[in-house]
Simulated scan of single mutants.
Amino acid sequence: MRWSRGAALPAGVLVVTVLLMVVGLTVGFESFNGKGFVARIVIYPVLMLAVPLAWWWRHRGRGVEPPWGAFALVMTPFLVDVLGNFLDLYDRIEAWDDLNHLVNWFLLLWGIGLLVFPTRESVARPGLTVLTVAGVGALLAVLWEVGEWYVFLKAGVESDGLYQDTIGDEVLGTAGAALAGLVVLRRRRRGAPVRVPGDPSSPTT
């Protein structure tokens, strides 16, 4: 995978996310307690790099410019989640968790949608495009909630109302993904590129 100025944005998102977790764990932030951040500091970077590495494996040797903008969209929800815990926004703002599930899934599936549907021609069937993006988002929302169930319920932390919270989070995540599907469809049908700020050579995807 070739490095370019466009890579600065996703790389910056990754670095800031890791630094926030390192600082929070080192200082011993109370807002990190019981949230599985010892595991997250390993899992989050792996998840953030999974999509770029998968893209690179598929396109290796083809000389194609990586879609840095889409990568940044996929990575940003992890930064938002860590920042929310770093600033203790989950406890200070009642609606923060719900807002996160809606917005983060929108950003995540916007990025994934641009990768799955890389051209105008790939969205020839609009309904299928939106349904695919929404469906992937729903699946990822379920997998995420399974992970939270393991961390919180198994550890005996935040178990009150966990089931109701899980259902709500899955609905919000799916709604965010559906919105992302509509955005992907609209941008691809207009042929609009996703450009990384400050990089005029940023690719279409």
Rank of each mutant, 00 (worst) to 15 (best):
residue 89 L to I: 15
residue 17 T to C: 02
residue 159 S to K: 08
residue 134 A to P: 04
residue 26 T to N: 08
residue 87 L to P: 00
residue 201 S to W: 03
residue 51 V to C: 03
residue 160 D to E: 12
residue 30 E to R: 14
residue 50 A to G: 09
residue 32 F to L: 08
residue 1 M to T: 02
residue 47 L to I: 05
residue 143 L to S: 07
residue 100 N to Q: 13
residue 138 A to I: 02
residue 116 V to T: 14
residue 195 R to N: 11
residue 126 P to N: 03
residue 44 Y to F: 14
residue 58 R to W: 15
residue 117 F to C: 02
residue 115 L to H: 12
residue 85 N to W: 08
residue 151 V to L: 01
residue 89 L to M: 15
residue 169 D to W: 05
residue 97 D to E: 13
residue 63 G to Q: 07
residue 44 Y to W: 07
residue 34 G to A: 08
residue 120 R to M: 04
residue 14 L to H: 08
residue 204 T to S: 02
residue 126 P to C: 03
residue 196 V to K: 07
residue 15 V to M: 06
residue 72 A to N: 11
residue 98 D to L: 03
residue 100 N to P: 00
residue 165 D to N: 15
residue 109 L to M: 15
residue 182 L to G: 08
residue 154 K to R: 09
residue 40 R to S: 12
residue 64 V to F: 01
residue 144 W to I: 05
residue 2 R to I: 00
residue 75 M to G: 10
residue 129 T to F: 03
residue 40 R to G: 11
residue 60 R to M: 07
residue 63 G to A: 11
residue 99 L to P: 00
residue 95 A to Y: 13
residue 175 A to I: 02
residue 101 H to P: 12
residue 140 L to C: 09
residue 45 P to K: 01
residue 103 V to D: 08
residue 90 Y to H: 13
residue 138 A to H: 02
residue 18 V to Q: 05
residue 57 W to G: 11
residue 2 R to W: 05
residue 33 N to T: 14
residue 25 L to A: 10
residue 54 A to D: 09
residue 170 E to K: 00
residue 58 R to Q: 11
residue 57 W to E: 09
residue 39 A to K: 06
residue 202 S to E: 09
residue 36 G to R: 06
residue 113 G to L: 01
residue 99 L to R: 04
residue 30 E to H: 15
residue 105 W to A: 09
residue 14 L to F: 14
residue 91 D to I: 05
residue 14 L to Q: 07
residue 30 E to M: 06
residue 64 V to C: 02
residue 129 T to A: 02
residue 5 R to T: 14
residue 111 G to D: 05
residue 72 A to E: 13
residue 63 G to N: 11
residue 150 Y to L: 11
residue 167 I to Y: 06
residue 92 R to I: 09
residue 56 W to T: 05
residue 141 A to W: 04
residue 146 V to M: 04
residue 59 H to N: 15
residue 39 A to E: 11
residue 174 T to Q: 01
residue 27 V to R: 10
residue 141 A to P: 10
residue 48 M to Y: 13
residue 112 I to R: 04
residue 142 V to W: 07
residue 193 P to D: 14
residue 199 D to E: 07
residue 44 Y to K: 01
residue 18 V to A: 12
residue 184 V to Q: 01
residue 36 G to F: 05
residue 171 V to R: 05
residue 130 V to P: 12
residue 70 A to M: 03
residue 60 R to D: 14
residue 201 S to C: 00
residue 155 A to Q: 12
residue 17 T to Q: 09
residue 70 A to Y: 06
residue 110 W to A: 06
residue 195 R to D: 10
residue 58 R to E: 13
residue 137 G to S: 08
residue 162 L to I: 11
residue 185 L to G: 02
residue 36 G to Y: 06
residue 101 H to N: 13
residue 126 P to M: 02
residue 19 L to Q: 02
residue 62 R to W: 03
residue 78 F to G: 09
residue 13 V to K: 00
residue 202 S to N: 11
residue 59 H to M: 15
residue 103 V to K: 03
residue 4 S to G: 13
residue 70 A to F: 03
residue 12 G to F: 04
residue 194 V to K: 00
residue 30 E to I: 14
residue 85 N to V: 11
residue 101 H to Q: 12
residue 106 F to E: 03
residue 199 D to P: 02
residue 204 T to R: 01
residue 32 F to N: 10
residue 86 F to K: 01
residue 145 E to Q: 14
residue 133 V to I: 04
residue 134 A to W: 01
residue 167 I to G: 03
residue 21 M to R: 06
residue 139 L to D: 08
residue 43 I to Q: 10
residue 168 G to H: 10
residue 31 S to M: 10
residue 87 L to K: 09
residue 12 G to V: 04
residue 42 V to E: 09
residue 175 A to V: 05
